[in-house]
Amino acid sequence: MSVGKKLNLSFTVLIVLLAVSVGSSIMNLKNIENDVGEAMDSRLEQLILIENIRYDVAMQALHTRSMILEPEEDIHRENLIAVAADLDGNLDELQGYLASEEMRSYWDQANAPNNDFNEAMPDIIADVENGNIEEATEIVNTTVQDINTAMLDAAEEMEIYQTGQMDNIDSEISSAIVTAQVISFVVLGASILIGIGLMFYVRRSITAPLVSVMDVARKFGDGDLSAEDIAVKSKDELGQLAAIFNASKNNTRT
């Protein structure tokens, strides 16, 4: 390999190592940013859904009692059915975010009473339509009230859990940063070691032979032909130059 190629290879390797080191740091920071963004978005979406569930439960209770108080107004029944459907949708959407056993447990605690309400709602509507207001009121004051309390309690537990998880994001960020720093130091350390290896390679294959050639050339210029031949260890430009000096010295001496 020629001297130029050796130097080009050394500089290319150093540039690649620097690029890898910088790229690794940038990639790690980007991954941290993406992970934090995804975690925050997920927690916020769940908190919004939990708040929607709490609102739907309250509106469900309101429309149920309004339907009993004003049985002739169909709008209350329609609103009740719409809110119940919206509550089902929010619970289903929240289920798609469940990733921990705690949230699955809280979700079950909210979904079970919601199913109970969906089963009781047709009976309440039928009682109101048939004029059985007392029976409908009894269901609302017992079964429905217990259902709403259970759902609100579950929603509160989910909110507390999600808020706590958002607080934990700070520690997760710190851990991710430490990991990124460790990776960066490892890559940097490897780059330094390889750079040192390249330095010794250049010194052994270029600098040392060049010094030998210069030493013999200096003696040759002073008329000293007693110096030993330069050891030719390569076929690159330095090796060829050493061979030329050896031949020139030996021809002059003879």
Rank of each mutant, 00 (worst) to 15 (best):
E33A: 09
I32H: 04
L69S: 13
A126R: 09
D108C: 01
S205D: 09
G96A: 06
E134R: 15
M166S: 09
L18W: 13
V140W: 12
D35E: 13
V211Y: 13
N250Y: 06
E101Y: 14
L198C: 10
D215Q: 15
Y161Q: 12
I244H: 04
V182C: 00
E237S: 01
Q165D: 06
L9G: 14
N118Q: 15
N79K: 11
V202Q: 01
R65S: 03
A227F: 05
I48S: 13
I183S: 09
V211R: 14
L188M: 11
V3N: 08
G197H: 02
A155Y: 01
D222V: 03
N114L: 08
E45Q: 14
S226A: 04
T149F: 03
I183A: 07
S100G: 04
L98G: 02
T142A: 07
I183Q: 07
T12P: 06
R204Q: 05
L17W: 02
V213P: 00
A99L: 12
A227N: 05
Q162G: 03
W107G: 00
S25D: 12
V140K: 12
K219N: 15
R65Q: 06
L62A: 04
V187Y: 02
L98H: 00
G239R: 08
D127E: 08
V144G: 03
V144A: 04
I124A: 00
Q46A: 03
I206M: 06
L98R: 13
I173Y: 04
Y97D: 01
G131S: 05
N115D: 08
L193V: 15
G89A: 07
Q240V: 02
E129R: 15
E134H: 15
Q240E: 14
V211N: 11
I68Q: 03
I124N: 01
D41E: 07
V36M: 08
E129N: 10
M214N: 08
T179N: 11
V57D: 04
V182Q: 02
D167R: 06
G223E: 08
G4N: 06
Q46C: 13
Q162L: 11
I177C: 04
V140I: 07
L193R: 06
K6H: 01
A154H: 07
A99V: 13
S105M: 10
I68S: 01
Q109L: 12
E138T: 15
L44E: 14
M1Y: 09
A85P: 00
F245H: 11
A190D: 05
V13P: 00
S205Q: 14
R253W: 00
D88K: 10
S234M: 01
R43F: 13
Q181A: 06
A136Y: 05
D222W: 10
L62N: 11
R65A: 10
S25L: 10
I206Q: 10
N28E: 12
L29N: 13
T149P: 02
I194P: 07
F200Q: 14
R253G: 00
Y97T: 03
E72T: 09
G4P: 01
L188N: 02
M103V: 12
T143K: 11
D108R: 13
K233S: 15
R253F: 00
I133S: 09
E51Q: 11
I68M: 07
K30T: 14
A150C: 11
V216R: 14
I192G: 00
G96F: 02
T137H: 02
